[in-house]
């Protein structure tokens, strides 16, 4: 089953500034959408608006050609959100954190151990997240993303706090996800080269 995410005529005004105007895009299964622009230009606002966290001044986001407000639950059940603020609790361990996520969202049948192994965090399972480095916490957030069984990935600045190796890993994961028929929306301020069909949206 292929999916389609599209936005039509999106306009957002925050306080004084008009962040973007009459912006449109379309994204099919197996492809990647990159929102580009300098820091503080409204990429984060745009990706949050597409995910349904910000209300738009004008325009509509469609999931499978239906406005997302009408299918909010299906839409949110089809996506996973990864951002700078990871949404993981510093006082809980890795396993406890991910256990909470499993109760909220559809999760894949693959073995968590494999995923931990691949991300290089299997030794950290019993540790409280607060004691991990920022990069390691990022990897835990990636593990959450991999363990959820959804077609649509939202990634806001996925490369911050990661070393070179980590960045390559993220690109690989996105490539794999798209080649399996998934889709990915990414906001990034640096050049991203991933070997999948890519749409780029530039924000001034």
């Amino acid at each position: 089953m292929t999916h389609k995410l599209s936005g039509d005529n999106l306009t957002l005004i925050r306080g004084e500034r008009c962040l973007f105007q009459e912006l449109s895009f379309a994204l099919e299964s197996g492809s990647l959408l990159i929102l580009e622009g300098r820091n503080g230009c409204g990429k984060t606002s745009l990706i949050r608006a597409i995910a349904g966290m910000l209300s738009l001044e004008e325009g509509t986001v469609y999931w499978d050609d239906v406005p997302v407000e009408r299918v909010r639950q299906t839409f949110h059940g089809s996506l996973v959100w990864l951002a700078h603020r990871t949404g993981l609790k510093g006082d809980l361990t890795l396993v406890e954190n991910l256990g909470f996520e499993r109760l909220l969202r559809a999760h894949s049948s693959q073995d968590p151990e494999e995923v931990y192994e691949r991300l290089g965090i299997s030794r950290l399972k019993k540790l409280v997240l607060r004691s991990l480095s920022a990069g390691q916490q990022r990897r835990v957030a990636l593990a959450r993303m991999l363990l959820s069984n959804v077609p649509l990935w939202f990634m806001d600045e996925p490369f911050t706090n990661l070393d070179r190796e980590g960045r390559v890993l993220v690109m690989e994961l996105v490539e794999e996800h798209c080649s399996r028929g998934g889709m990915c929306v990414m906001a990034a301020h640096q050049d991203v080269e991933i070997n999948v069909p890519t749409t780029r949206v530039k924000i001034q």
Binding site: S78, L103, R105, S109, E114, R118, R180, G181
Partner: peptide, 21 residues
């Protein structure tokens, strides 16, 4: 990691009381 994405959005989402719990 070779499985395909089978999910259709809401089929395996835990029920709403699961979120509360």
């Amino acid at each position: 990691m070779n499985q395909t994405i089978s999910n259709e959005g809401q089929r395996d989402i835990p029920g709403m009381f699961a979120g509360l719990a």
